[in-house]
Design a protein around this nucleic acid. Structure first.
Length: 770
RNA sequence: GCCCAGGUGGCGAAACUGGUAGACGCAGCGGACUUAAAAUCCGCCGGCGCAAGCCGUGCCGGUUCGACUCCGGCCCUGGGCACCA
């Protein structure tokens, strides 16, 4: 389900269902040829009615509970194609197909009340020891709980008494507020726009602009006075109200108090429009408030210029000011969340239909269970001008489930994040036709180890955590709140991307189909499509993605080198959490290594083994094994692959075939078996080490092999490496120091100076400070 | 702009809690084998220097006997910013 399938459908003029099913077949065969141990009888596809029926079923439950509701939301509108665009389809403010300037439009949509779970989703992060700190921190900041104060600024409009409410985390700076600013959609802005054409123009300009937060945050800060003045709730001073494009209607009250002296954005705005700047926090370096802005202006400190609050600290001031505001009915302490409810309506065809019937008499009526699923017709081909479901009367026209009169079906479909928020629970219950999940989900959940790209750190993982709670509270999976016990976030695989721009529309060309000429430093001079020589534009390096057509097909690697090499190389190239710029140049080394293992094993199978043991090589093998076992725990599989290589290198140094060869080879095959299972399985059998390497006991290092009488210590003088010494394992400090001083090179650097201090790090080094 | 990561040889990387920077590979160079090539094997492989040694982990500064690792500031790259998923 989703946009890529619709785009492909448009480009190839085939229904997205067909394209999707053929992709599933291809990817399934690739997964099979890589030899992963997957339980295919649990397979599901979210575009299958057996699956999405339960999206619809849960939605109707949430709707009745008020956890799903309807309100207006803002979308990108392409005025030429008369269609809603995804953020991805807006390129530099214009529609991707039409090039028309994109407008904002408010339309009714359905929302899931994730904010009802904000507190729990935040607090529970502390109970996820198996999650990377990085991800928990991102989620915490995204949910964005802030303690602050809601402050009211009274004003009069057309003779009516009103209050402008703002939220601030810096109530301590209230006496430094010199103006207020409201969003373009705020009632004060609307009022002012009616009276003053210039303001109306500005408000309209703000409303035309971007929907995306990243864009909003980067636009030039602009504003206009509304002519409205509010009264400062403590000083009684009159403050002007401005309408400003950097105030978001979606956060807080859609209005803010501006304290230019202690907020960078307010300062920028005040300087631009000549508004007053009043410092109210003592600067740690003295009375310095003049521009340019300095970050320390925003630090908490002692209040000044604030009348009775002078001398108070941040906490004291916030408390005192909140109390005084409360007494006047003009404010109180308040918790504010950054998290917004989740808009799930998509004005698109290839998704799960939202199970609502719009009845002129009864309003929005959820489709009853007996009529679920609302099946998506699969034969349509979208043409880019809106949802084709709207043009399908047999889908749209229906009867109200409540009163039986003629009614219209909702044609919006659900955000595909809904599908991916609970599929893991469905994996637990193959074949279940009568429920979303059954008691098997209770048995299997939570997922022990979840693996996914870091790009999902916030949205997908947060939505899944939310859904797990929805299912819990629906009584489906009682007592389980968190879906994923351990989380590994893979780094992104990056590749260059290229597009042609001939028709004014970007057409992405796979890097494999591009010929590139580079200068000596590797910078791209020009690039063309290999097939027809058409010039292509280099778009930089970024994530491999469907939309930029810059993925590498793993099949080519499997065909050329086999699945084991493809697997070994992927493990060896870098740790899974690293970002990786893809290059298959060095696959050769992995292939060479596996062939050497094969070769070594076959020579061994024909050799006569001496019973002797090579203690030095055995030590090396067991040392590598110990490290490899640690690295598996740490999920650093690239060094496990190198440990395999080091063990083979050590084995090849053996002067003759002996007991160490046999033990070492047996360790190597078992260590290698999860990475290269096909080959190691075969060799294990051939060598008669057992019948199934995957069932053989995991190798553990032998403590006896790791024992050493002498250890090597590094000798430093003033922290610089000057030599090394061999000392008996049990040597004491004095003995080590004596040996270190006896080293001739050390003597050169110590000669004529007195040793002030000696640092001994047991088992590692001795440092003489002169 | 905001939030989160990352930056180490020509390249992928290693160095686990502050303790020998560059393990293991790729590419490259030199050699062996071969009529030749492929494959394989051996050696070299951060920079400067004849050497001793000096410098070197994005940049600037700090803490420490000792910093890739910790602290402060900056630069660059990647991920996310709510309709790509």
């Amino acid at each position: 389900f989703g946009l890529p399938a619709e785009n492909a459908a448009m480009a190839n003029k085939v229904p997205p269902a067909k394209w999707t099913h053929s992709n599933i077949a291809t990817m399934k065969s690739q997964l099979k040829s890589l030899g992963f141990a997957l339980d295919w009888h649990r397979e599901l596809a979210t575009c299958n009615p057996d699956y999405y029926k339960w999206n619809q079923w849960l939605f109707t439950r949430l709707f009745k509970k008020g956890l799903a509701y309807k309100k207006t939301g803002v979308v990108n509108w392409d005025p030429v194609d008369q269609t809603v665009l995804a953020n991805e389809q807006v390129i530099e403010g214009r529609g991707w197909r039409t090039g028309a300037l994109v407008e904002k439009r408010e339309i009714p949509m359905y929302f899931l009340r994730i904010t009802a779970y904000a507190e729990e989703l935040l607090a529970a992060l502390d109970d996820l020891p198996g999650w990377p700190e990085q991800v928990k921190l991102m989620q915490k900041n995204w949910i964005g709980k802030s303690d602050g104060v809601r402050v009211g600024f009274p004003y009069e409009l057309d003779g009516k008494k009103e209050t402008l409410w703002v939220f601030t985390t810096r109530a301590d700076t209230l006496l430094g507020a010199t103006f207020c600013a409201v969003a373009a959609e705020h009632p004060i802005a609307t009022w002012a726009a009616k009276r003053e054409p210039r303001i109306r123009e500005f408000v309209e300009e703000c409303q035309r602009g971007a929907v995306m937060e990243a864009e909003l945050a980067q636009i030039e800060k602009k504003g206009m006075p509304t002519g409205v003045e509010v009264t400062h709730p403590l000083s009684g001073q009159r403050l002007p109200v401005w309408v400003a494009n950097y105030v978001l209607m979606g956060y807080g009250e859609g209005a803010l108090m501006a304290v230019p002296a202690h907020d960078e954005r307010d300062m920028e705005f005040a300087l631009k429009y000549g508004l007053p700047i009043k410092p109210v926090i003592r600067h740690p370096l003295g009375d310095r408030t003049d521009p340019p802005w300095r970050p320390e202006y925003a630090e908490h400190g002692v209040l000044i210029n604030s009348g009775k609050y002078n001398g108070l600290s941040y906490d004291e001031a916030v408390h005192a000011i909140a109390e005084d505001l409360r007494a006047k009915g003009l404010g109180e302490k308040q918790v504010q969340w950054r998290l917004r409810d989740w808009g799930i309506s998509r004005q698109r065809y290839w998704g799960c239909p939202i199970p609502i019937v719009r009845c002129p008499a009864c309003g929005d009526v959820p489709v009853p269970d007996k009529d679920l699923p609302v099946v998506l017709p699969e034969h349509l081909v979208p043409d880019g001008t809106g949802n084709p479901l709207n043009k399908l009367p047999e889908f749209v026209n229906t009867k109200c489930p409540s009163c039986g009169r003629a009614a219209k079906r909702e044609t919006d479909t659900m955000d595909t994040f809904v599908d991916s928020s609970w599929y893991f629970a469905r994996f637990c219950c193959p074949g279940q036709e009568h429920a979303m999940v059954d008691e098997r989900a209770q048995y299997w959940m939570a997922v022990d180890q979840y693996v996914g790209g870091i790009e999902h750190a916030i949205l997908h993982l947060l939505y899944s955590r939310f859904f797990q709670r929805l299912m819990r509270d629906e009584g489906l999976i009682p007592g389980i709140s968190e879906p994923f016990t351990n989380l590994l976030t893979q780094g992104m695989v990056l590749a260059e991307s290229y597009y042609t721009d001939a028709s004014g529309r970007r057409e992405w060309v796979n890097p494999a189909d591009v010929t590139v000429e580079r200068d000596a430093k590797g910078k791209i001079l020009w690039a063309k499509r290999t097939a027809d020589g058409a010039p292509v534009i280099y778009d930089g390096i970024g994530t491999m993605s469907k939309s930029k057509n810059n993925g590498v097909d793993p099949q080519a690697l499997i065909d050329k080198y086999g699945a084991d090499t493809a697997r070994f190389y992927t493990m060896f190239a870098s740790p899974p959490t690293n970002t990786l710029e893809w290059s298959d140049e060095s696959v050769e080394g992995s292939y060479r290594f596996l062939r050497r293992v094969w070769d070594f094993a076959y020579k061994f199978s024909r050799a006569k083994c001496a019973p002797s043991v090579d203690r030095k090589i055995r030590y090396q093998i067991h040392l590598e094994l110990r490290k490899a076992n640690d690295d598996i725990e740490r999920q650093k599989f690239n060094t496990v692959a190198s440990a395999c290589m080091k063990i083979l290198n050590a084995l090849e140094e053996l002067p003759e075939w002996d007991a160490t060869s046999k033990e070492g080879l047996s360790i190597l095959l078992r260590l290698l078996s999860p990475i290269a299972p096909h080959m190691t399985h075969h060799l294990w059998l051939e060598l008669k080490f057992g019948d199934d390497v995957m069932r053989a006991p995991w190798p553990d290092p032998d403590p006896a092999a790791l024992e050493q009488d002498e250890i090597e210590l590094v000798v430093q003088v003033n922290g610089k490496l000057r030599g090394s010494i061999k000392v008996p394992k049990a040597a004491d400090r004095a003995a080590i120091e004596e040996l270190a001083r006896a080293n001739p090179n050390v003597q050169r650097f110590v000669a004529g100076q007195s040793v002030k201090k000696v640092v001994v790090v047991p088992g590692r080094l001795i440092n003489l400070v002169v």
